[in-house]
Design a protein around this nucleic acid. Structure first.
Lengths: 226, 226
DNA sequence: TTATTTTGACATGAATTCGTGTCACTTTAC
DNA sequence: GTAAAGTGACACGAATTCATGTCAAAATAA
């Protein structure tokens, strides 16, 4: 009895965790797997029912796990939303970045179009993620609002840097180009939301044409007088 | 006893409502007054705590009324949000429309700027309304999403009609000008949200310059080849 | 096999929200 | 003054959610 509770205490202090495999996976692998399952289930549920009207329980059921494991991986429902938001925002940014970089063209406009195409294509393939990122995330909490704002800002910066990379000598024809870029990113998102809520009724090419049109016009004006 | 319950039954069937004044107001005036108080309180509470984390009770307390009266005027919390959204969207649209109409200039760009100025000024004066319209309303419910989408669409149409009014002969240089306009409106909103979340740190003129820059660039391109 | 860890199903309790209902009090009409 | 209508404070139950806890069964190491 003495020895038993001593063992327990040691384990709780946890210098050396009792790495024991279960169904072929060790502790950290299992934990990571469950986390992945929860993320996937979170996207499924939040992306269809909506964040506001889903509970941890629903997500756990979808994941085939219990609430105990939910709170082992995430502090609460909002933490899961944040994680999903961050992970996929970064993924999308990388996606766009890659598409822009790999474009074999000198024209800025064509590169922008490649980036936008990559974006809209991915969003059509992953409508639940699109909904979470661009509809469900607004008005959740001040922290979430800040995260969304800084992410939007990140995309805006990306565009500005692209401009400056291609036209390093031009100085942009407006006081606050960053604010204009934030507007552009907001415009791209608004078009996406419209497309999404109409169940992707219009062809990708129409959406793409409109969004790149906006970008091209503004870019041209930005560089005009530089 | 018999007579009493018969009277009651008559009143419940309610052919002739017992219009009795109270504190100098008749039934419908009182009801309207309470509705107004609830709207005001709704804007106060939803615009500061946020829609997601406020209850009917909070709104009633703020209004100095009881829940009984809340449900007399609104089916539920969301109905109040919808009413506020609709009323102020219409007010803002009228505001912009008037500013554009009253502009004493031939230049489209200047008229657009007048409209945007009226918009951003009003939003700075009413930050709680701004927050409700452009942050809190997203992801509440499918109905609300549709309302937001159709309102955004309405603003886009307004812009297109303005263009066509000033340049009736030009045909716009893009297949789906409406979609571009939706993007522009989204851009204006995104700039507002950025401004709002930074507590209106930047001067109005900066915000205005960026937003009108976007409009001017795109309008010019739209009309270019027409 | 046996002891222990890990798991899943379920219980729990505090908290909150919704929408309705009760009841004493105030204001009005007569 | 009196009876009726209107009001506000509060209670109420049903429902839900969150986050944690319990416990027997399954899987594993020895």
């Amino acid at each position: 009895m003495q020895g038993k509770s001593q063992d327990k205490a040691e384990k709780e202090q946890g210098e050396i965790a009792a790495e024991r495999s279960y169904k072929g996976l060790n502790t950290s692998e299992r934990k990571a797997l469950r986390r992945t399952q929860l993320m996937k289930a979170g996207i499924d549920v939040m992306g269809s029912k909506g964040y506001a009207s889903c509970s941890c329980k629903m997500i756990c059921n979808q994941a085939g796990l219990t609430e105990r494991y939910f709170y082992q991986s995430f502090a609460n429902r909002e933490a899961l939303l944040q994680t999903i938001y961050q992970e996929h925002s970064e993924r999308i940014m990388a996606l766009i970045s890659e598409a822009v970089m790999n474009g074999e063209t000198d024209q800025l406009a064509l590169r922008v179009e490649l980036g936008l195409r990559a974006f809209y294509q991915d969003m059509r393939e992953n409508p639940k993620i699109a909904r979470i990122l661009y509809i469900e995330t607004s008005g959740v909490s001040p922290e979430m609002d800040d995260l969304v704002a800084s992410t939007t800002h990140g995309f805006a910066i990306m565009f500005i840097e692209l401009l400056q990379h291609y036209y390093p000598d031009k100085h942009l024809g407006v006081d606050d180009a960053e604010l204009v870029a934030i507007g552009l990113v907001g415009g791209v998102n608004a078009i996406l939301v419209h497309w999404l809520l109409s169940n992707f009724e219009m062809p990708l090419e129409s959406v793409l044409q409109s969004a790149s049109f906006m970008f091209k016009s503004v870019s041209a004006s930005l560089l005009e007088r530089g």
